[in-house]
Design a protein around this nucleic acid. Sequence first.
DNA 1: TCGTGACGCACC
DNA 2: AAACGGTGCGTCACGA
Length: 604
Amino acid sequence: MCPALKVAGDAVEINVLEDASDIPEFVKWVKANKAGLGCDTETTGLDWWSESFRLRTVQFGNHSTAYVVPVEVSEDLWDAAVGAIRFLDKLAFQNAPYDLLVLDSQTELNMEDIWPKVTDSKILGHLVDSRARKEGGSGHSLEDLTRCYIGNDVADKIKGSMAELARSMKTTKAKVFETIDVWHGGYLTYAGMDPVLTYRLAKKLGPLVPVSARKLIRFEHKVAEICSYMSRTGFLLDVEYTKALSERLHLEELEYTQICRDLQCENPWSTDQCANALIFLGYPIDNFDRTKTGKLKVDGSLLERVMGDKRSSDMLKLLAHSIDRAKSARKRRQTWVDKFLGQRDRDDRCFANINSIQARTARMSITGIPAQTLPGNDAEVRNCFVADEGHVIVSTDYSNMELRFLAAHSQDPTMLAAFRDGDDLHQLTADAAGVSRKAGKTTNFCVVFGGGWKAVHEQAGVGEEEAKAAVEGFWKTYPGVKKLADKLTQEARRNGYITTASGRRLYVDRGREYSALNYFIQSGSRDITCRALVRMHEAGLTKYMRLPIHDEVVFSVPYAHRLKAAKMTAELMAETIKGLEIPTDPEIGGRSWGSLYELEHTKH
DNA sequence: TCGTGACGCACC
DNA sequence: AAACGGTGCGTCACGA
């Protein structure tokens, strides 16, 4: 028995099962709590797919009592924990996808059987307040939610106890979980507190979800479930190709780093050193922009200016080019290629960690395989991933989802007609304002982002006057959009938040009410993709899904069924919003993901 | 030795 | 009156 602890004034009892003789008491307690308990796992790390990964303890908790089951010490304890999970009607987890992937991969339990019983306190927390802690919101980690809804003192104690463990063991936090003795008192206290906090948070947060968002609770749990199946499936890596690419990028990096060194730039990753070396070779210091902290700005556009400047010497141009190439090669290798190789499992699969409800707008984020940020202008990096044996890659995305969503919800007649008639919306905006198509297109996107003429000016590379005319023309051409934007801005000003088409509450920062339109569109578009995931799941397509990427879903499908699969995904994903269809565009590729990008490559 | 902020760049 | 929204990740630089 651990020392008594207090949470928000209540004593919390943490029990540890030491051997089989403790099991009857635990079973009795679980039976008395059949309706539901908080649950958590402690493991050796986060890489649930790796061979060295181990499940160490499973913990259960209610409002005031916790049981820590050190499943790694005996089969009896293992069976007791597994039995409890099977027996309980409801289970509350904090970030359920992770724990369920652990239980699924390490025990005889299946995610499919656990998910229907799950409440995820992270999902509830996000539905209550989607903002990160930095943004003035609650945040969504266990520590943040505890701090916000239970008490600072408890959150500090949890955080402090972990740091203390690391200190006492003279190691890093990550190593603690791998090496600490399972009977260590501090460890067991830490482990036991988590399910108690999760249980309390789940109880507390449920009623705080705004009425308009209640229907999203089930929906978001389903989306998280589907994403966890995609995580579990993983994506097959073409190891031979990936190794060769890594090697090539490494040589490229070395070659260009050497040139930088020869030109007095020892470290091209230090912006200070780059600036100094460029100035040393004669580039005028006045030509630099400054960062907001007043330092010389060295970015891609500066390097481009150096290379394009007629007054630049050959050496200066060579330095700018070499800095760019060295950085680019290393970025590709470190951020993507080598990461894939390092993370693969014994079957050469990589596993994405999909946070199905992460951003302030509820957009997903994907780490592990950073699928949302793979370079899109060539096939090189994406070719690392391939469809399963006998499969090909299919990718289905929405056409113009955000602008169509805007047209549907604003019911602006001009914009609606343009989409219905298949007109060129970018040209339409351009014609209305008497500007180039490029300015028109950029304006359409900038308005969605909440940008103004300055953004159009910089992004489209058109003059200030043309940019001003384009933005002014936009609002005149689409008065319905203006009306929606004004309505949302006022709503944000009045309430401090907007309610999206799905009923989600999104807080908007004071003084930044112009972003309300973007939140509405971005969040609504994300919900469209997620509803499509649910429909495809119900149609039995989950095992072919690999990754959701904003307005796109990537699949691996059997070659023989590629046509039918593409058609099915296109039909299931398409959705009609207020009478306007958001159409989809399925693409059938070859074995590698990059094959879908090779055509676009020829554009350059 | 770490954690963190600034910066730059990859994307929708 | 105007207003660039949302991410992940790697490096450098700095401070506890």
